[in-house]
Design a protein around this nucleic acid. Sequence first.
DNA 1: TTTAGGG
DNA 2: CCCTAAA
Length: 481
Amino acid sequence: MRTERKPHLIKKPADAKRQRVDESLGPGLKDEATEVEHLLVEPKSEHVSVDRVFCFGKENIEKHLKMEDFSCAFDYGWKIGSGGLDSIHGQGGDDLKLEVLDGLLDEVDEVDDIQAAHDLSSACEDFLLDIEFPEKFSELDCGPYEGSNLRNSSSESHSPGGSSNSVGGMSESSIVTVQESNSKNGVLGKMVNCDIHHTIRSECGCQAPVMETIRPSKEHGQDFVESDDEKPLVSFIVSNKKVKSSVKVTKGGTLLRQKRLRKPTKRYIEEFSRNSTTSGKNKCLKVRSQEEFSQIPSESQPRRGRPKKIMPKMEFGSDCELSASESEDECKRTKRSKTACDRRKHQRMWTLAEVIKLVDGIAQYGVGRWTDIKKLLFASSAYRTPVDLRDKWRNLLRSSSAHKHNRKELQGETNVKHYVRPLPKTVVCRIRELATIHPYPKARSPNLSSINSDPSSKQSTTTKGTPINTHGRNLRGKKCN
DNA sequence: TTTAGGG
DNA sequence: CCCTAAA
């Protein structure tokens, strides 16, 4: 690797520059250096897009026209981004490519927040409608944003092997970097900030949330300009770029700021949540968007010592992968979590799809091999730990048996309040079946000495061809219900 | 580290 | 969902 790399250094001017940058910035800023290289490769074009952004910020009085214009600009900027990357890859060797990609991956981590903000788009739209923004504005929101989104996905194929995430993130961050370089002393950044602030305020008549959320960002304006953290700026640019509505801005801002100012942000988040959920109806929309507040930051960190490092990145790709069940999931989960359930801070509703998947997994691997099931079937959902699976299965067993048992007895009572029992009969049947096939571990209970604790006898019942390890477990009372 | 069980 | 103990 090393030996190969030197020739490239000599050959490739961009790389040389990069090296210089590396040295001047120090090792800690290597990622930024990657961006800088990017800039060096295609400085002009990036400026174009940024300029457009600025223009948009200032002249968005003629919204529609500008927005169209802007979407083109964004498209352009993005493509250039890919182009730059491409050129790098073309000239650099494999090792260089790897390095760049590496940098990109690192970058992705940083850009996660932004991307997360992207994911909020739908929620934002809902929220938007919820708080009664001018329709005109919301229309504006959807148009260009979706447009750019489409372009993004379409140009994915052009991207040279890199993950779409990295490329997308890179284009954005590079834009921001340009911005920063333009505003070395931060004045411009502030100006933009204020400008956006002003724009939004005047633009959408500005309900309370917006003012409240924008203001703190102004307070911290200096802060983020001084630190080499460009994210706040990113959030504003991006949000302005896509005109994600003030809510979006808020989210970006709070999300990104959270890293530096943990406490204020949290408090602020709480406050905002409280403020924004004044009415009881439309819970779905509101809860969703506010849920994102507490969920995304908390998930970027390992939720529970368990998933530790494996998850954060995976989760991202998974969101794309699972978009179907995931989005469905997004809808369903939450619902509570705001009702001050002090424990269970992280609750994610189990969707039917998940339950079915879980049942399938258990049918395949047997009960007790939760990690296997998790790895193979829930690899994409980072938030489901093996323990969760087990808990869920336990609950399913309980509910299914209860179902079977109470069915007639408690019908009157259950009707009082339509309990959430969306479990289709087929699923319940499967659960019951599985329950008989592999009884839940429930450790051999000492009191049941009646059973000779002869595992082999039990084993015979668990013939499923599956590699079920020896569940020497007793049937115990559970199934006798 | 994974699984089981209790809360 | 969280926590802890056991393997």
